[in-house]
Nucleic acid binder design. Sequence first.
DNA 1: GCATGTATGTCGAAT
DNA 2: ATTCGACGTACATGC
Lengths: 231, 231
Amino acid sequence: MRVVFAECSVDYSGRLDAYLPKAPRLIMMKADGSVLIHSDGGSYKPLNWMSAPCTLTILDVTEEERDAGVSQIWLVANAKTNDALHIRIFTILDEMDCQLGQDPGLVKDGVEAHLQELLAEQVDLVGPGTRLVRREFPTAIGPVDLMVKDADGAHVAIEVKRRGEIDGVEQLTRYLELLNRDPLLAPVTGIFAAQEIKPQARVLAEDRGIRCLLLDYGAMKGTDNVEDRLF
Amino acid sequence: MRVVFAECSVDYSGRLDAYLPKAPRLIMMKADGSVLIHSDGGSYKPLNWMSAPCTLTILDVTEEERDAGVSQIWLVANAKTNDALHIRIFTILDEMDCQLGQDPGLVKDGVEAHLQELLAEQVDLVGPGTRLVRREFPTAIGPVDLMVKDADGAHVAIEVKRRGEIDGVEQLTRYLELLNRDPLLAPVTGIFAAQEIKPQARVLAEDRGIRCLLLDYGAMKGTDNVEDRLF
DNA sequence: GCATGTATGTCGAAT
DNA sequence: ATTCGACGTACATGC
């Protein structure tokens, strides 16, 4: 990886066009050819970048550009997608180079899957007398997170999300439409369960007769721990 | 901005827990306190990071950790969100420091907002005699990009996308369903307008009686410029 | 500040 | 290879 502090201007052309005026920035060139242009603030997202696969070519500097103070022009391009980054280097302030090698990678421990698991264990949160049929109940268009039966024995499909947005309601709607075609299951009602449900998603869900259920992850996890201690 | 090549291991704890085993990496510390950990590959997204606002504290290295080769421990934390990054530095391979100052920022061109704006100005592209009612026409489930009236005075809802895919058609369908319940508006027809429309999206749209309209951004921008020159 | 929609989203898994 | 859903999404914008 090569890292350069330089005064530069950058043009991106591809899915959109974007331009960075001349200013001092950090340019990171990774071993796979990708390039990142960072300023001294903002988030982890670079101001501009090219993702691998791409290749760096050093272009000729025209007389005119040299007079304007451009010392080098780097073209970083992806031949396949036609994306290209033109980096005009005025002054290189400092640079480093280092062989880092392959990274062992990030080990994650997520919350998302845990919610479904917890609700399957604490299915009475849906309503008294509710029984779990199965998790990841299969349908032709993908598995429903939870299939349960309510106290009256009627099927209820539950979509579990960390954050409940409109897409999730659409997903559950598709499942319900399909499930209700099966005479062995119908009528199947739906529950949209999430730690947080956006107002628009709630409106859409309730408009479609889908019940919304707010999940308290902390409390559910706490209940889970207590049970763990009992056994 | 300070940039360090170092052998390090990193622990993140916050919305999830994640761990990076010991390996050589790039650590970027920005002026606003944010920290990025990059490997020599992957995309522009760092392996791990902390966004501003956050503060870096240098922790004591325990005897045990020193024996394991840890020379420094950096704690990067956001007091408010309880997110924290523990960076254990084993060996610093190289480093640089540079004052970059405030960046003038990225200038973008060709995003959806611009398309919507252009179509609002050139609403006759929809058909002769079409008039703009308003942009961002509000509904309970979100704003419709453009609401227009055709030559016959009938309402037409337009969804503008850069790339027209299935979820865009779904979005417009939801709006149409809602809008058509309003007797003051109904009947409302739909137009799916995009620079590029995926075949599946086109099939779905037309199946639902939604007209597809391909937008030529270059031409629209050109027309815009010509008009600018006329006035 | 909250809520919502877009993104050069990225990323991974399943089809 | 493509599609789909999740993301520590980030980010701008309207309210």
